[in-house]
Each structure stands twice: as C-alpha cells, then as structure tokens.
Amino acid sequence: MKPEFENIPLIKNEEKKRFEIQYNGHFAFIDCKEMSRQIALIHTEAEPELSGTGAAAAVVEKTLMYIENSGKKLLPFCPYVFAFIKKHPEWKRIVDEKFEGYNQL
C-alpha cells in the first residue's frame, strides 16, 4: 500500500453494504455481503478521479486486514480482489478453503 493511504481509515458502510476509503474527496470501495462466518467481496471500484493512485489496492488491502481481524473467511468473488490475492499470496490464508477458485490462487 502506498504511504499516502496508510493513515486513511477504512469505513464499513452498512447502509451501502460496502467497505470504503475516502481520498481527496473521492471514494474507492468494495461491495460486500457479510455472513456469520464469511465475507464475500463482490465488486471493487474507485471513482475516476482516483485512477492510477493506488486507491483500489489500498481499499482491498485494508478490507483484507479487517476480514482477518474479524476472524471470518474471505470469498473473493470480485476479479480485482482475486487478482490481488494471486499477486500477494500471503493473503490466501484468509480465503475460505471451500471457495470454488481456491486452488487457482
């Protein structure tokens, strides 16, 4: 994660069912579905003004930290999150072993 994102808090927006960060007045977020033992990450998006800043990667990494700290397992349905975990295989530790694409990570 780029240093400029380290101190930006992750917001769990219950109303919009997403995790988000705000940077320079714009949002990067991940739509999610939370269950009793798992959190499914469905879609990652950053507003166009954040393109190329690393905001999407930052919201993913912060969300993975949140999931790990919650003790829940990750279901990475979002292609961006899936690719992030392939690139950073240390995060596979929080992916639910029953996830269909687990062996491709």
Rank of each mutant, 00 (worst) to 15 (best):
residue 33 K to E: 14
residue 22 Q to A: 14
residue 13 N to T: 12
residue 21 I to P: 10
residue 1 M to H: 14
residue 49 E to K: 09
residue 77 F to K: 03
residue 50 L to W: 00
residue 59 V to D: 00
residue 95 V to Y: 01
residue 94 I to K: 00
residue 79 P to W: 00
residue 57 A to E: 12
residue 54 G to M: 10
residue 25 G to V: 07
residue 91 W to P: 04
residue 99 F to P: 03
residue 8 I to N: 05
residue 23 Y to Q: 12
residue 14 E to H: 04
residue 4 E to Q: 14
residue 9 P to Y: 02
residue 100 E to F: 08
residue 28 A to D: 02
residue 25 G to E: 06
residue 47 E to A: 06
residue 102 Y to A: 09
residue 105 L to P: 06
residue 16 K to C: 06
residue 14 E to T: 09
residue 32 C to F: 12
residue 16 K to S: 07
residue 84 F to L: 02
residue 90 E to G: 13
residue 55 A to S: 09
residue 45 E to V: 14
residue 34 E to Q: 10
residue 41 L to D: 02
residue 35 M to P: 15
residue 74 L to E: 00
residue 84 F to P: 06
residue 66 Y to H: 05
residue 59 V to S: 02
residue 105 L to A: 06
residue 25 G to P: 07
residue 64 L to Q: 03
residue 99 F to T: 01
residue 43 H to K: 10
residue 24 N to E: 15
residue 97 E to Y: 10
residue 7 N to S: 15
residue 101 G to E: 15
residue 73 K to S: 14
residue 54 G to L: 05
residue 38 Q to F: 14
residue 50 L to I: 09
residue 101 G to H: 14
residue 80 Y to C: 08
residue 19 F to E: 11
residue 9 P to A: 09
residue 75 L to C: 01
residue 8 I to L: 11
residue 43 H to M: 08
residue 4 E to M: 13
residue 41 L to P: 06
residue 28 A to L: 04
residue 36 S to R: 13
residue 86 K to F: 08
residue 78 C to I: 00
residue 68 E to R: 10
residue 58 A to K: 08
residue 62 K to V: 05
residue 10 L to V: 09
residue 64 L to V: 09
residue 22 Q to I: 15
residue 98 K to A: 11
residue 56 A to R: 04
